[in-house]
Simulated assay, not measured.
Amino acid sequence: MSFFSTFLGRLVAVTLALLLLIAAWQSIPLIQSELLGWRAQPRQVTARGDLAEDEKSTVALFESRSGSVVFITTVQRGVNPWTGNPLRERAGTGSGFIWDDLGHVVTNYHVIEGATEALVSLADGRSFRAGLVGGSSEHDLAVLRIGVGVDRPPPLPIGTSSDLKVGQKVFAIGNPFGLDRTLTTGIISALNRSLPEESGRTLTGLIQTDAAINPGNSGGPLLDSAGRLIGVNTAIYSPSGASAGIGFAVPVDEVNRVVPRLIATGRYVGASLGVRIEPEINAALSERLGTEGVFVLDVEPGSAAERAGLRPARLSRDGGFQVGDVLVAIDGQTLRTPADLTRALDRLEAGVQAKLTLLRNGTRLHETIVLGASGRGAGGR
């Protein structure tokens, strides 16, 4: 027998042996199943043990607070331009929360802006047609009212925002993309943020958080670890329109100042000096002159500023620009920019006295002024 024939015979034998071994190995489970009567069974559950303490706290917070969060659907009525038939279209959705035992619901102004109707849905499935009590576009806050007869959801407990710290845990509850009563968590990322809006308004003093906030979360509560309201979720910063870890909330101290006035009068009327200020001109003058403060460009006739004798900027006889009064403090609050004056006046009420500190021709003066009501005109305060 030749070497080649011997080698080929051995190769065939080895191949057959391997094939028989593989077939035998694959048939072992079948043989075992047949011989031992095994059947496929669910695996035994491993005992989990108790939840971690922070998990227990989060669960308890959601269970105790989510019932106070509502789902808001807005509707716009109109007329079909082709047929003349009335139209009733869903305009959008948002979130809100129970403010008190009288049926008042707080949400964002932009949630209900332009709507002709609003429907408020509770956690227990009940829905109510809401009436608009009042709103402030400058604070992006609005108050609705629903007629809840029995089994009223409890109002959220109120916290404070003046003592918040970056790094604190926060919890947002809302209805992102229409998914009702969704909980997201995070921390306070920054404080006193400003956010320009498409309308031209600028929201100031905002809380920044990395808790996921998406479309539909607007108007929902931002809570601290004690379950207290510390802000109203109002906006996100995201090129894609979805959460990018940068969300903003109106601080509760502002909410607790604005909402009672909306409930009482239907609108927010802040204090006003009656001076015209321009941020860009103010920044240029401050840099050129090396002076921090708010430069008075004009004084409105009949205003608190005119009654107090404030002097505006004016053109000199030779065509030059003569600086007028520069406001540097009001009621002890330092004024460096027009935004500082806006925030300071927003915390004061019309008709009250305020102590104004100003620079006039380099001399520091103190005036007591009775503040007027804010007309909120563009560029004016």
Rank of each mutant, 00 (worst) to 15 (best):
S5H: 06
F97R: 15
I22L: 15
V326A: 09
A313Q: 05
I158C: 02
S240T: 14
I263W: 00
A378D: 01
D50L: 14
Q26V: 06
T342G: 01
T291L: 11
R364L: 14
K355P: 05
K56H: 05
F7G: 01
L87E: 15
L223R: 06
E349Y: 07
G216Q: 09
A40E: 12
L35T: 13
V269F: 04
V299E: 03
G186H: 04
L229C: 01
A60K: 11
A373K: 13
S27R: 12
W38S: 14
E34I: 15
T73H: 13
S272F: 08
S64V: 04
V106M: 07
A271G: 00
L144M: 10
K355A: 15
P86D: 10
G245Y: 09
V275F: 04
T209I: 09
R126C: 05
G9Y: 11
A244R: 04
P86T: 11
L310S: 04
T107R: 08
V326I: 15
E367I: 15
A13G: 13
G372R: 03
R343L: 12
S303F: 02
R39M: 10
I277H: 07
S225I: 08
P221H: 04
S64M: 07
F7I: 14
G274F: 02
S161G: 06
A40L: 15
R193F: 00
S66N: 07
R336L: 10
L61M: 12
G159Y: 04
E367L: 15
T15C: 10
G270Q: 04
G266C: 06
G67V: 01
E349I: 02
L203C: 09
F4Q: 08
A354R: 11
V259D: 03
G245R: 08
F97Y: 15
R317M: 10
G178N: 04
I173K: 01
N233E: 00
G324V: 14
R376H: 09
V255H: 01
E63Y: 02
S27T: 12
P196N: 06
R48Q: 15
V250M: 05
L30A: 12
A344Y: 09
G216I: 12
L327F: 10
